[in-house]
Design a protein around this nucleic acid. Structure first.
Length: 292
DNA sequence: CTGGGGAGGGGGCCC
DNA sequence: TGGGCCCCCTCCCCA
């Protein structure tokens, strides 16, 4: 059983940053020679070596990749991006940067123009009857698109880059998961002790090994979805409360404009939001939420 | 050896 | 059909 933070209060900005524990974010600022800046050597030479345990949310400040300016909150960065979208679209860079993962990542500007991934894709995609075979590792897939995604795993060039450390991922969810190592967000809290984890499987492993608990889920059965605010760590099992939290505390979050996207919010049929009738200014109470 | 952190990779759903 | 997103299991590394 997970205990949601029933008395959530947003931390003050000076609480979110541990100045004595700050890593220097990767310099992704634009310049007159953007293409040279985004070389593989550049992107990999700045990856930070030492591991540092997160203490509070936000050890590092979210960085605007074009302007090389740090913001106290991810939502502040998003606010700036939103209000300066016209300037962003007319920037002088030859490689237009696209921010992903709520401002914590960027699309690798090298990915689209590089030919390596495409060469791998078209040189090794073979169809053997009902199966699709990877020519590099001989793995079989039921669908062409699963093979295509698998082929990207053979490329060292990653589609998405972390703005904190420059590490690359092919999946935005992997980037989001990785970002928690920088922000210190630990959504999965143990109900038996004070421990919290970045991944659900880590929590279940902890509960199984330390507390002797065993979950009742079958193999590969999906758990109840937990909505996580990657800005401040607020969690909720209720999509409506999650939406209201984002709207009230992070009004410039990109998620605000995607309430209709069922990949982001799965409202039930009784929810006002499911009918797209959003109530402005309504603040939901922070009830204690437990999920099995 | 054990527990925790982090990541790789595949399945599935929605846009 | 590809992209995006979320989830799962699994593995590896480290203290």
């Amino acid at each position: 059983m997970l205990n949601m933070d029933e008395n959530f209060h947003p931390l003050q900005s000076n609480e979110k940053h541990q100045s004595n524990n700050m890593e220097q974010p990767l310099d992704l600022s634009t310049s007159t020679n953007t293409k040279n800046l985004f070389t593989i050597e550049y992107l990999t030479s700045n990856i930070l070596k030492p591991k540092q345990k997160p203490i509070l949310y936000y050890q590092q400040s979210p960085l605007h990749p074009l302007e090389n300016k740090n913001y106290s909150l991810n939502s502040k960065l998003n606010e700036h991006v939103v209000t300066n979208i016209s300037n962003l679209s007319t920037s002088s860079t030859n490689c237009a940067l696209e921010i992903v993962n709520g401002g914590h990542g960027i699309k690798n500007p090298l990915f689209e123009c590089a030919t390596e991934a495409l060469q791998i894709k078209y040189a090794n995609s073979t169809n053997h009857g009902e199966e699709f075979l990877c020519g590099l590792c001989m793995k079989k897939f039921k669908l062409q698109r699963l093979l295509n995604r698998h082929l990207k795993n053979h490329s060292q060039l990653k589609r998405y880059l972390c703005t904190f450390c420059g590490k690359g991922f092919n999946d935005t969810f992997d980037l989001k998961r990785h970002t928690r190592t920088h922000t210190g967000v630990r959504p999965f809290k143990c109900g038996q002790c004070e421990k919290a984890f970045t991944q659900r499987c880590s929590l279940e492993s902890h509960q199984r090994k330390v507390h002797g608990l065993s979950h009742t889920y079958g193999y590969k059965i999906r758990r109840n979805k937990l909505y996580v605010c990657e800005d401040c760590g607020h969690t909720s099992a209720d999509p409506t409360k999650h939406y209201e939290h984002i709207k009230n505390f992070h009004p410039y979050s990109p998620l605000i404009h995607r309430y209709y996207d069922k990949r982001q919010f799965k409202f039930d049929s009784n929810s006002l939001l499911s009918n797209k009738t959003i109530s402005d200014g309504s603040i939901l109470s922070d009830d204690d939420i437990h999920i099995q």
